[in-house]
Design a binder for these strands. Structure first.
Lengths: 197, 197
DNA sequence: GTACTAACTGATTGATCAGTCAGTTTCGGA
DNA sequence: TCCGAAACTGACTGATCAATCAGTTAGTAC
């Protein structure tokens, strides 16, 4: 028996299932069997399916924040512009290595629940605020060092987030061949924000 | 009794329900009762729930294509750049007046079904191709008249679609106050593509 | 009116699923 | 070794829902 409680195993399984199949299409029985656990065990750890979902979301939240804080601890950039492009690239990178996280965040159920459940809303807001502030900070730094032109850092950060998110979604839905858009996105962002005199 | 068949009424109701609540969370009983119809009537017109969904999607497809073709029939632009910005603005406008269409197109079920059902995939591809080509054409025109800089029209069109889509999604999820981002998006796109010498 | 078909319906079925419950197993501490 | 609590389980329940079916009604042609 490993030290790791079954509770964490349940969360891990549920993360993948909720992310790929959605909330309603994931049955507790399925989560249980993929975790090698009896169905009722989940209800010992989580009162309801919704409570399990919130735990999954919270787990994604902390994971995401930690990943970004680690990235900026290790990387350093010559300019705000480079910092911005680095952040975007890392965002895209995470969206590949931790696909479930981003799928879960973009699931409709997540936002529907957030409109009704304050805890869920709180987690979601923290995540989005974190993501926006990363871009915002880079833009502000870039304006100070002259690498980025005159624009509203807050609003531009939101537009960039929308862009990155939109690209991730386009690639996930693979109506078009993926991968090639990453470099195009970076180039477009550079053209969009850089200081040109 | 109106001439308009109940079949169309069913599609209209289903469009809104599928768009706002999703496929699995919409019950046929609900569609029926909101259409003032017996539950079994739907199954007379549509063999399965999935077939109803496909009809809804097809309806959205034709509506969307018609709306854009009408727009470009009536509007004319001084430059490719202005045409692009007009297209983006109209896209955003449609996303407000015909919210169900865009919600439906972005539903996860739509893309999951497209991966499995060729008819669904066909409809989706037509819609996306249409949307991309609108931007692509404007970019190409702009490069000829000199209003738009040297860039790949195809790839840039995809990036712009992702951007617009991302903004629409951000506003729908209203974690941030909406509306204000539209003008920011247009300004950002202009900075991104315009020819600067 | 009659005959035929298309449109429509109420009652039902079988499957699925979240959640409950009464119980068993596991395990750390005294 | 024994106790008590925490962890876990199998069997069950009530509700929901897509789909079916045997039928009734509306419309149309002659």
């Amino acid at each position: 028996m490993p030290k790791k409680s079954k509770k964490n195993a349940i969360i891990d399984t549920a993360t993948i299932l909720f992310a790929t199949k959605g909330f309603t299409n994931t049955s507790m029985t399925e989560v249980a069997s993929l975790t090698d656990i009896a169905g009722a065990t989940i209800f010992y750890h989580f009162k309801t399916k919704e409570e399990l979902f919130i735990s999954v979301l919270e787990n994604v939240k902390t994971g995401l924040i930690q990943a970004f804080s680690l990235y900026f601890q290790e990387e350093h950039f010559p300019s705000g512009l480079e910092r911005l492009l680095g952040a975007i690239a890392y965002h895209l990178h995470l969206a590949e290595t931790k696909k479930e996280w981003f799928l879960l965040l973009r699931r409709h159920y997540t936002h529907e629940l957030a409109a009704v459940n304050p805890v869920c809303r709180q987690h979601l807001e923290v995540v989005y605020t974190c993501l926006v502030e990363i871009f915002e900070k880079a833009l502000t730094i870039g304006q100070q060092d002259g690498s980025i032109g005159p624009l509203s850092p807050k609003k531009t950060a939101l537009v960039i987030l929308a862009m990155v998110d939109g690209i991730i979604q386009l690639e996930n839905n693979n109506l078009y061949n993926a991968g090639t858009l990453y470099s195009e996105l970076l180039a477009s962002c550079r053209r969009m924000v850089e200081n040109k005199q």
